[in-house]
Design a protein around this nucleic acid. Structure first.
Lengths: 298, 298
DNA sequence: CGATTCCTTTGACTAAAGTCAAAGATTATG
DNA sequence: CATAATCTTTGACTTTAGTCAAAGGAATCG
């Protein structure tokens, strides 16, 4: 991997410093106006899960100490902002959710945060506002992408299966004829010498996958490249593809093939953009309607 | 001014939330590794002023309580990071500056912040890194611009004179023949009915100016449009120009003229882009070599 | 079914962050 | 030149944030 240019590091830090000093401080100030910042943040995080969320989950998401969280939850409960109950299936877990009063409070928090944002934007002309929000969207997209890691996992791993289930549900909704899970690779086909399975993780959660399996000597097949709806348009599919191609090459499978369904037009465009060429049918997968091949440069 | 679109507010907040949660937290963690965050921030702020800075100044810049700051300064002094002395001209003020040990400490802080930035950037391809840092630069530019206010001040105001002094020094360096301060407008010419003076402020500091004065009935003259070197390339000159034009129109001076020196090519380009047309000489200012006019639409 | 692991609560702390007001030394101002 | 204003220091707090360990109830595993 190429080294990072010092000019880029400097630009990154300039932004970082400016933003945290200007916006970050204001933000915390607004947020922590009528209660401690920690409580305000907790309240906000709870509001992100309207159906309630376990303390366990919050603890890992916010990186809080168990005792600390327990006390904050109690304080919020005493203020009538949240309701605590035990998890129906597991009595060790405590579920926390907003009360109507809590929802009002969060609404007020949001109103304040909106005010902060509008106040900043109001200082700009309409095209400048658009430019700013576009730049922010680009920066967020790339920051997210930078934080996502692609890892080789065993085909039997729960995360692998979870991704495949989500993938199957996705296709079932998109294909006019539906999707039959029988078409999924079996764990053994993408483990060990037979193949490989990659899972992309964002902040610990699996958000994408891709499989490689041995098709014939020197030829690998790419299957089940999928990205979670929340992680689309980041450029993650290309990253998965690159990881799979790299693995294929490592195994000496210098050619990779794949097939895809007619309705997945964006996928076809991506494969073409990544150097894949459409070829005649090489298999009779139920859902294969376009076939691609790429010769990998060592 | 047009209202701010909710989509833009949402995009702003999405970024805000993501950035503070991801980068802000990491940053604070790195920074506060071997001393309290407050002290680390203070140390950094002091390092920005190699010649030393008064506690007074730090207090207003960081928004700290006087007592709190005094104690932190004492703590840093005890650790051998800073030296405290009284201001030569005003014995009430205390000046604070880094010791060699303090400079080493700040260097280490910087090294860690650089590491954080490179670690993030390393997760991207070279073009993506460039895209990210470009987006950050754009965002910073616009955030700065949004925070700058343009205010009408009296021509005698100290900030107005300070800007004109800086303007004069600037031109003296750029004009081959130098610049004589006698050419500057007199305070009376840009106050009351005779004219107006605008100063642009960024975080309390004057960073630009522009003057309007009555040339003849119905015609105003724009003079001394200047932007501090640190605030250039933000689009501030256009903002100053817009404020002056608005004021001119308000007074019923529907035409504005200005002249500029041949070496200021960017200025000429800007005037043209803002709707100014080159006209024959309308005055015999010593430094006027190009003349412009704009008819203001009511 | 007994040991182990999980999750939460509680007690007992500590450190950091921040506030307020009084007091002392200087400087500006009418 | 007296008075007011400015700036820093100090004492005496409070609140927030965070840590650690013990303990108890509940699920899981062999």
């Amino acid at each position: 991997m190429e080294p990072v240019s010092t000019e880029q590091v400097a630009a990154f830090r300039r932004f970082n410093r400016y933003f945290t000093r200007r916006i970050g401080v204001l933000n915390d100030h607004y947020l922590g106006q009528d209660r401690p910042l920690g409580e305000a943040r907790l309240l906000f995080e709870i509001s992100e899960n309207p159906a309630g969320v376990s303390l366990r989950e919050l603890r890992s998401r916010l990186g809080l100490d168990a005792g600390y969280l327990s006390r904050m939850a109690k304080a919020l409960q005493a203020q009538g902002m949240v309701r605590l109950r035990t998890h129906p299936d597991d009595n060790r877990l405590r579920m926390i959710e907003l009360t109507p009063a809590g929802r009002v409070e969060v609404k007020e928090q949001n109103r304040r945060a909106d005010t902060l944002a509008s106040d900043v934007l109001r200082g700009l002309t309409a095209p400048q506002r658009q430019q700013l929000t576009d730049a922010m969207a680009t920066a967020r997209r790339l920051l997210r992408l930078a934080a996502i890691t692609v890892e080789l996992v065993d085909g039997h791993a729960p995360d692998a299966r979870a991704c495949l289930d989500a993938y199957a549900a996705d296709l079932d909704a998109r294909f006019p004829e539906g999707f039959d899970k029988a078409d999924l690779v079996r764990p053994g086909q993408v483990s060990g010498d037979a193949g490989a399975f990659f899972v992309a993780y964002e902040e610990g959660r699996p958000v994408g996958c891709g499989a490689l399996r041995r098709l014939e000597p020197g030829v690998g097949e790419i299957r089940h490249v999928w990205v979670h709806p929340d992680a689309r348009r980041l450029g993650l599919a290309r990253r998965l593809l690159a990881a799979i191609e790299h693995e294929s090459l490592r195994r000496g499978w210098n050619v990779v093939r794949l097939d895809t369904h007619a309705v997945l037009t964006e996928a076809r465009a991506m494969y073409r953009a990544c150097g894949y060429q459409e070829i005649p049918a090489y298999s009779d997968h139920v859902y294969g309607q376009h076939w691609f091949e790429k010769r990998l440069a060592p």
